[in-house]
Nucleic acid binder design. Structure first.
Lengths: 203, 203, 203, 203
DNA sequence: GGGTAACCGAGACGGTACGTCTAGTCTTTAA
DNA sequence: TTAAAGACTAGACGTACCGTCTCGGTTACCC
């Protein structure tokens, strides 16, 4: 099974270690509370204290498992089932890319999209956080696209001189540009993006 | 005279009003101090108090002329000469777009790019700030691109069925995607972007 | 006029300085809240946060004027009118000492005595605090006693070989011993102390 | 054998109970670590966690045998051999009191005195702790003095109208007054105290 | 000699308070 | 009227302990 790499901070009781084991319940409560609070307020208005209170948990417990607010929020948002990225096999490489785009647009619509934008925003100015965000969210989507592009090039479906990295920028760029400039994804945008990519990638 | 619209909070002493006149020197000192401090630290670590101290200015003076930290920072960064967007006339519409892209990439390289990314990042989660950012930075670049696109469509240089808004997303998207994901702009990226656009826009 | 040296942190607006002047109201509110809270709980259960909340004041304001909880509490307790130490002139030196003892016993009876004991207790293990306590509370009582003892020696009312410092220990010692061991001051104790001193000091 | 009543929390393995027996070694390690740490820091800076770590012991083990930090510290300090209070028989009642005073002054000089002062200080504001301190430290010294005073009254060595309780306050008071006000015991103080008591007690 | 019960170390838990920091506002004197 | 200075309320930060709890494991006694 392909599980989201976003679940960065997982519980691991495999080792028979001494000491009281980590409370699975607290862990869930923290993530739940974070998600719940984020529906009412933007990330920068969310405080660790508020999470602790809402989750019925000591602040220490949060700081024991996550280094800062960012990490908790990323974990809370990205570990949602809606952000799982399991994709069906597709007939053609371009079909795969198209499905990936459609899925991403659905994931980034509405509240969840705002949350992602805010997390990405807060990560600017902190390279560590930015790397962490990339690993938690972009990596698997990037990999999936890369796989399709590579397949398409090999099969002759796509242009032979295609630069993979730039192609990914061309796919993801417009989506995130609209996200961070606060414009929503209307059907016209989706259609135009896909049409444009079809023209740009095809052999 | 064509002055950058980024200078949102301009001095206007045209009226002969009573009372002590606004100190032009303080105004400059504030923006200078802000710029100076931003070379050492990210936006979110910059405090208004630090600006005031460095500028030798009361905090009140800052809040009298700018509504909040965001506004000061935007003003300080966008009013730099490097961010002026005066472009030469160009032979073809595509040439105009190409020059605009090249200029933008130069503006967003290095420290200035980081600052823009951080400002844009901080504006997520605050629709007011986001709108303000758009007006201060995107608007004139957006307008310029729209002008070229329109010209190109009219002259038959570009496809007749071109959707202007989507076209702009395709141009700006990849650039800002690389910016906010922390990747820098290598020559390959620039070349690939322009080539891809040439293919996508041409009739 | 003889004013208690306990009011260590006084407001002084004599200089015409720039900037918003210190808020007399906040100052009073902090001290009031502290006193009020101390009637319900011992010093070590009192938190600066609670004082700030009760006084309707920012925590910063407290920390701006007092270095820590100790200092606030000392100021609050010792600046009470009941702790003023104005004593009438007395016919004989011994009479002066007797009145001083009676006054001190009245000041240290009940809740106020407990507060003083707790403050003194908390100051153990922090030489700075201990010195501060001595200056705030002991000094003037010590001085008063020293004055009477000196007068009595000079006039021949007291023994010529009297050691002043030891004499003060003999006077204050029993009182504070009962205070810190949690015994209250019954009339028998008062009478016995004074009788004993009369015997011990007289020529 | 006369053992200090200070050893409040003694090991008692007399009953043949089931289960793992209490670890004598841990017990010693805890008290040792506490004493060792107290030479470097005041009582209120000492944490149970630090004791546990230094002693190589679980926090649980400490809390199983002592109800709180206070109790551990009292046990650690008062169970030291130096605090044993075995006194030789004395020719006269006053001689007995004199020896008791001398011993006490020696016990309370230096670091040990500071520790006692801090323990007594922390006990202010907690009547339970204060009672516990009295039983652990004062009781036997109080009893010894009471015995001598009673003997002296019976034998006519002391005044017949002597109030025992007040007399003890007069003896202990000056000593603890100097202790808690941070003054040390110089020879002059000792001589003056004893001389004064001689005058005050004698028939 | 197997069962059981109290002990042990480790360390996570819910809490509370600390003292610091910043935002944005308010109030004074000086220019 | 504006400026500089700086005090103000509000509230989050991340750290340190408290005393409790829950593990896996270790000894003794008791049957």
């Amino acid at each position: 099974m392909l599980v989201s790499a976003a679940q960065t901070y997982q519980i691991d009781d495999s080792k028979g270690k001494a000491g009281r084991p980590r409370s699975d319940e607290s862990h869930r409560a923290i993530l739940d509370a974070t998600r719940r609070l984020l529906t009412h307020m933007p990330v920068h208005k969310l405080s660790v204290e508020a999470i602790a209170k809402k989750a019925g948990v000591g602040k220490t417990t949060i700081y024991r498992w996550w280094p800062n607010k960012q990490a908790v929020v990323m974990d809370a948002v990205f570990s949602q089932p809606a952000f799982l990225n399991i994709l069906p096999a597709s007939a053609t490489a371009f079909e795969g890319i198209k499905v990936q785009i459609e899925k991403l647009l659905r994931q980034l619509a509405g509240k969840n999209g705002r949350m992602v934008a805010e997390i990405l925003g807060e990560a600017q100015g902190d390279m560590e956080a930015l790397k962490s965000f990339s690993q938690g969210f972009f990596q698997e989507r990037y990999d999936a696209l890369a796989r399709y592009l590579s397949e398409g090039k090999d099969s002759g479906e796509f242009r032979a001189d295609l630069d993979m990295e730039s192609a990914i920028d061309l796919i993801m760029g417009p989506i995130f540009f609209r996200l961070i400039t606060g414009q929503d994804f209307d059907p016209a945008f989706e259609k135009n993006l896909i049409d444009s990519l079809r023209r740009g990638l095809s052999a």
